[in-house]
């Protein structure tokens, strides 16, 4: 396909514009796209314009605007380069990284060694709840109701704490 403007170079940039409520498609070469970008608006920088082109047909989702407060990397940058900018990116993009980690590693939790200076990983609250629930089942089976009641209260307390953490 040749460029709609110069009719010389192959069209590599595909524009969709709304003109008078009608969708107009344009196929232009990179050089013409740049010239057009200059014409369109002086306030708008070329990089904004060309950056915008990449998003045509794709709504700006939360994922693309999300930026890491520590290093300034956006999730879109990460998708382009495949590299995170800092340790904090893992927390910032947790929502998107978790499914990615599952895909790559089939796991989301570290089980290997820990640094010599840092203490061993403490079991997470959710693991503790699981264990308490098992103890509760056992207590009911053996009809130790007093113990079961204590366990029930402990579980409730832990679950409440966990929910509060999640809300934060």
């Amino acid at each position: 396909m040749l460029c709609d403007i110069c009719h010389k170079n192959p069209a590599t940039v595909h524009l969709t514009e709304i003109v008078n409520d009608k969708v107009v498609e344009m196929h232009v070469c990179e050089a013409c796209a740049q010239t057009k970008a200059q014409e369109i608006n002086e306030q708008l920088s070329i990089s904004d314009f060309l950056g915008g082109l990449l998003d045509i047909g794709e709504k700006k989702t939360k994922e693309q605007v999300l930026r890491c407060p520590s290093c300034g990397l956006s999730y879109a940058d990460f998708k382009k380069k495949g590299r995170l900018g800092c340790a904090n990116c893992y927390a910032t993009f947790k929502h998107f990284l978790t499914p990615l980690l599952k895909k790559i590693h089939s796991a989301t939790r570290h089980v290997g060694k820990t640094p010599a200076t840092i203490e061993k990983v403490v079991p997470q609250a959710s693991d503790e709840i699981e264990q308490l629930k098992k103890a509760l089942e056992r207590a009911i089976k053996t009809e130790e109701y007093e113990e079961a009641a204590k366990l029930r209260d402990k579980i409730k307390e832990l679950e409440k704490k966990q929910n509060q953490k999640k809300k934060k």
């Binding site: 495949g82 590299r83 995170l84 893992y90 990284l97 990615l100 980690l101 790559i104 570290h110 820990t114």
Partner: peptide, 12 residues
């Protein structure tokens, strides 16, 4: 290092 994810690296 994070207790969840272990050693944090530039590439996931």
């Amino acid at each position: 290092f994070s207790s969840d994810l272990g050693y944090l690296t530039a590439c996931p």
